[in-house]
Amino acid sequence: PWQGRSIASSRLRMLEFSAFLEQPQDPETFNKHLFVHIGQSNPTFSDPYLEAVDIRQIYDKFPEKKGGLKELFEKGPPNAFFLVKFWADLSANLQDDSSFFYGVSSQYESSENMIITSSTKVCSFGKQVVEKVETEYARFENGRYVFRIHRSPLCEYMINFIHKLKHLPEKYMMNSVLENFTILQVVSNRDTLETLLCVAYVFEVSTSEHGAQHHIYRLVKD
């Protein structure tokens, strides 16, 4: 049931995704602030399918040359492509403190035992500015293979970007900057190079008192 209703292709399903800041309160406790978060969901057949977005509407927000979003989508499979609109929670009090930890954690599951590679490209005006590539091995748990990218440190570029964004006096200014800031994550099978999941992330700043929010869309080409 999760196919078409959550971030899942026929080969790999995203279980959880978060970018966070951990601030030590005292030697034994941490305060964890979530900038963005996709929690575990268990859709059923009675849930509606995700809304669709025509991928051509966002091509220019992501790398367009060789290996870009267009080429990736043409290679397929088409059911592996998603768009996530995040409303990021920037309400945390950020200070320059070396005891702070900025990280990203994500989890995936599959019925197949394989080695996955996750490429995360941060883009400014559609051009890649930094890329992180991570390789993860499967762990067999409860009848399926689970992949965990646990507490991957956020790069300097992203930490500086968040700090600069926070310093802008008005939310509309932050959103104006974020209009040209995107992230493209491609998870592939390390050995066969098949695309397992491709998630395009776009952002606004949350105005909610309930923290980070998101909408997920299927990317299609009509």
């Binding site: 509407q57 220019d60 559609g126 909610s208 998101h214 909408h215």
Partner: peptide
Amino acid sequence: TKQDQVPMRKRQLPASFWEEPRLP
């Protein structure tokens, strides 16, 4: 007009794209 000169607000995106969920 090149697509990269078109603001997101003027593109064909679902209405929900501009509606922040209010879930706790």
